[in-house]
């Protein structure tokens, strides 16, 4: 159907497009570790904004970026609101409905929320700047068996397809009078059951059909295979990974020295 994107990859010749897929795969644990090791909102905000800048530079459609950020916005606001209910460190900012909101708890909630936004933005940026075939090649070069690399890449490749399926199911159930927007949070969550069940069933059917289609074309006949393209690790990749590794080391130092921590003892 028109309007439904079935491919996430965005064509371009930007910094992230030029990076070796292995660099981008290694970048994920480094980036995630960086935002996990510190819990100071200023540091996580700096990482998040540099990622947004990278995403914008890599031709990622503004709408996609907005969707990613707004999808994680709910958890962002939830963490900002919920953490202060349980954490009482730092000076009191205000009291509402008998709940005391402290400065440190608020900042910690802010940090956790931005952490999630950073992770989703980073994943989205990598997916949109790496082709399906180079993702497989990158994973295989990093030692993952070919079949597992295809499986993992396929999972990413089919995300938009599943998102389209999800949209159609939402439309179908709304056409049957389902009002997802109404009710308290528990009722609203319950209303998603008629969406999730058909989506699961469609996903299983899709996976089964895909498996059969791959089998019928001889997939898995040989454990290894040759590739038309070969990967080249360049200076740009080395510099990119060094910069992020240094950032991670600085993050660890900030954690140890206490500069990167708003509430000690918490992740």
């Amino acid at each position: 159907m028109a309007g439904n994107r079935l491919d996430i990859y965005v064509e371009g010749d930007t910094l992230l497009h030029r990076l070796d897929p292995r660099t981008k795969i290694i970048w994920i644990p480094i980036g995630f570790a960086l935002v996990m090791v510190v819990n100071h909102p200023a540091i996580i905000a700096a990482v998040l904004f540099s990622l947004i800048a990278l995403a914008l530079n890599s031709n990622l459609p503004k709408k996609s970026l907005r969707n990613v950020l707004s999808a994680s916005a709910f958890i962002f606001f939830a963490s900002v609101l919920v953490f202060p209910i349980y954490l009482k460190e730092g000076p009191v900012i205000f009291k509402i409905f008998g709940i005391t909101y402290t400065r440190d708890a608020f900042l910690y909630g802010l940090a956790v929320g931005m952490r999630l936004m950073t992770m989703t933005t980073m994943s989205m940026t990598i997916i949109t700047t790496t082709t399906f075939s180079s993702t497989i090649l990158g994973m295989e070069n990093l030692g993952l068996p070919y079949r597992a690399a295809v499986g993992a890449s396929m999972m990413i490749r089919y995300l938009p397809t599943l998102a389209n399926e999800g949209n159609t199911i939402v439309e179908a159930q709304k056409s049957r009078g389902l009002q997802l927007e109404k009710g308290n949070p528990i009722n609203r969550a319950r209303k998603y059951v008629p969406i999730i069940i058909p989506l699961f069933i469609r996903s299983f059917l899709l996976a089964k059909q895909l498996g059969l289609a791959l089998d019928s074309r001889g997939f898995g006949l040989h454990d290894s295979r040759t590739h038309l393209k070969s990967l080249e690790y360049r200076k740009l990749d080395r510099v990119f990974l060094i910069v992020w590794s240094v950032a991670l080391i600085l993050g660890i130092i900030a954690r140890i020295t206490g500069y990167g921590v708003i509430i000690p003892g918490l992740l």
Binding site: T168, I169, E171, A172, Q173, S175, V193, I197, P198
Partner: peptide, 10 residues
């Protein structure tokens, strides 16, 4: 809808 599996859930 075209595909009944898009709406059947019960």
């Amino acid at each position: 809808y075209q595909n009944p599996d898009h709406q059947i859930w019960a």
